[in-house]
Amino acid sequence: MKPAPFEYVRPRTRAGVLAALAAAGEDGKVLAGGQSLIPLLSMRLASPKVLVDINLVPDFSALKISPTHVEIGPTVRHQELLTSEAVRKAVPLLAQALSYVAHPVIRNRGTSVGSIAHADPSGELTAVLSLLDGVVTIEGQDGTREVTGSDFFLGPLESAINSGEMATRVTFGRLPTTMGTACVEVSRRHGDYALVGVCAAIVLGEDHQIDRARISLFSVGPTPIVIDVSGILKGIRIDSKHWREAARFIASSVDPDGDIHATTAYRKNLVEVLSKRGLQCAYQNALDRVAVKQ
């Protein structure tokens, strides 16, 4: 239960970090919060030769909230994001999802950008990025590029970040006040990985009728699964039949793997139940936000 030896570097500048990552190439790994990485090292499921600790780079800890965007730096801790009132107002889904991310003690150290870069298919924030089309800025010595939403996730623990690169920022647009969101999940114990989880977003149109409805499922496939149910819910207000129809459509669109924690049938059932609950919560949240605005 001890990590294998590695070379440790802790540059103080962005340029220093990118140079160290470029020099290490495939043998390098970024250490931000380490709350997922260090268990992997301790269990020797991973043994990178070089760890590049990015915690001393001052501008990496920036959390910028502008009238249009929320920009999250790579060493912003979950807890800072969760407790920021400005973030809660701009992108409520971040706080809704973060309250399910591990325990407060883990959230004190773990980073939100790191959680996305880790690309764990059961990570709440991966579903948030996919649902809201958040933008990941990936930097390397050869340049900077941006990857949006679902395109960032290639497979379990596999993202669009190449060796020698790192995610230096994740950006979310401020949600319109006509949009309501929700995150719901079922896990064996609070703070555990979700057996199934759902992030939902609903946009209201004229007269409080639903205009658009989307859902993002986590712990269901190798990457977050985004499903649009606008076709079923467009134009309706509250009607239990339509919620059920949308939830059944979502459940029929997925084929989750079974494992020791939950069978395929149970996961599909959870997808249906949680999709309905998530969509209804998001709808209520949208009504509340519109009411506050008026």
Partner: peptide
């Protein structure tokens, strides 16, 4: 557990509770 699950190794770092088994001393 030495992988962040049990919480027995929790200490305070700059006033905040953290798992000491999920941090390197050099960090």
């Amino acid at each position: 557990c030495e992988h962040g699950v049990c919480g027995a190794c929790t200490v305070l770092l700059n006033g905040k509770a953290v798992r000491s088994c999920l941090l390197f001393a050099v960090s």
